[in-house]
């Protein structure tokens, strides 16, 4: 038993139990479904994962900071609505396919702005991010309904709705964008001063203040990053559907938080990484895809995911508590 733990692969899996789980479900579905182990299906999984995955990247930053953002689903819907609607504004009518550019830029800016508002309120008022973004979640969703008049917008420019069908080599373009963002955020978190400060602020906020880190602006930047990623996710989702519905992104915050927590990020902050988060979103993606292929009704996925969430956190507690010396609670 002992020499097993010396094995670097196993040791790595102990620290990232979610990847062990990804491996298990991957093998399970490969054996039990004829359609699962197939390059086209893998592309599918990546595309399906990219929506939640993009937001999860930002959520990892925000949660390591010791905050949370519940407004991402609503931000996604608002950005999608802008992206689809602005293209058809009269002022861009003569722009041809270029009309997509201002639309997407504006949508992304809206996402950044929503994040900035969240971050600014958290910074200046000191109100818990949970409450602030809960308010933002309701407020922004309301804005979406006001803006769309409860109607869905349809993309009139076919170049927009064809975008998601592109591939670069074997990778669908949506999956490619997602993977690039994974690399970028991973680099940001593990290699830059901003990334290290993210851990410091979440790990011990007072220590960060004492060390002269400007905690407020720092948190605001992370909220702007998640706002941007949620908006990007909304734009990409609307290209897939060729439309933006006012109810887009409902419950996404829950899926995202589940994925991030599955990936080992602590709700209290200070701990977590992008590798874990990637494992978390892939676990959810593979499960949903595999169970869909096996024609399991969708609501069972919820039951199973809920159980797995608790099981993974339980195992994590088992394996990774050495510090308290087994004090009984």
């Amino acid at each position: 038993m002992r020499h097993l733990f010396q094995n670097p692969v196993l040791r790595w899996l102990m620290r990232n139990p979610i990847w062990g789980f990804v491996l298990i479900v991957f093998i399970f579905f490969s054996l039990s479904s004829d359609h699962f182990f197939d390059a086209r299906n893998f592309q599918n999984i990546l595309v399906q994962t990219s929506t939640i995955g993009l937001i999860a990247l930002g959520m990892t930053l925000v949660m390591i900071n010791g905050n949370i953002d519940l407004s991402v689903g609503a931000t996604l819907a608002l950005a999608a609505a802008f992206a689809v609607d602005v293209q058809s504004w009269a002022m861009f009518a003569t722009w041809g396919n270029w009309q997509i550019l201002p639309a997407v830029c504006l949508a992304l800016l809206v996402g950044i702005a929503m994040g900035a508002i969240n971050g600014f309120i958290v910074w200046k008022t000191g109100v818990d991010a949970f409450i602030v973004t809960l308010g933002a979640m309701l407020g922004i969703r309301g804005l979406v309904f006001v803006y769309t008049g409860e109607q869905s917008f349809y993309a009139m420019n076919f170049a927009y709705s064809d975008f998601s069908a592109f591939s670069v080599g074997p990778l669908p373009v949506l999956a490619l964008i997602f993977l690039l963002c994974v690399l970028a955020v991973h680099w940001l978190l593990s290699r830059t001063v901003h990334g290290r400060n993210t851990y410091a602020v979440g790990g011990n906020r007072e220590a960060a203040v004492n060390a002269g880190i400007r905690v407020g602006p720092h948190m605001m930047i992370n909220f702007m990053i998640i706002g941007f990623l949620a908006a990007l996710s909304g734009v990409l989702l609307s290209t897939q559907m060729g439309a933006a519905t006012p109810n887009l992104g409902r419950d996404y915050e829950l899926w995202v938080i589940t994925a991030v927590v599955l990936g080992g990020t602590k709700l209290t902050g200070g701990k977590g990484d992008i590798i874990g988060t990637l494992g978390g979103v892939l676990a959810i993606g593979i499960l949903r895809n595999g169970m869909n292929l096996m024609q399991v009704p969708a609501f069972y996925v919820y039951v199973i995911l809920g159980s797995i969430l608790i099981a993974v956190l339980f195992l994590d507690k088992r394996f990774n508590t050495s510090t308290d010396g087994g004090l009984r609670l």
């Binding site: 290699r191 830059t192 001063v193 901003h194 290290r196 400060n197 410091a200 960060a208 060390a211 880190i213």
Partner: peptide
């Protein structure tokens, strides 16, 4: 903490 040595692009 708070003054990590930096290289270009804010890298540590």
């Amino acid at each position: 903490l708070g003054e990590l040595p930096r290289r270009s692009f804010g890298r540590v």
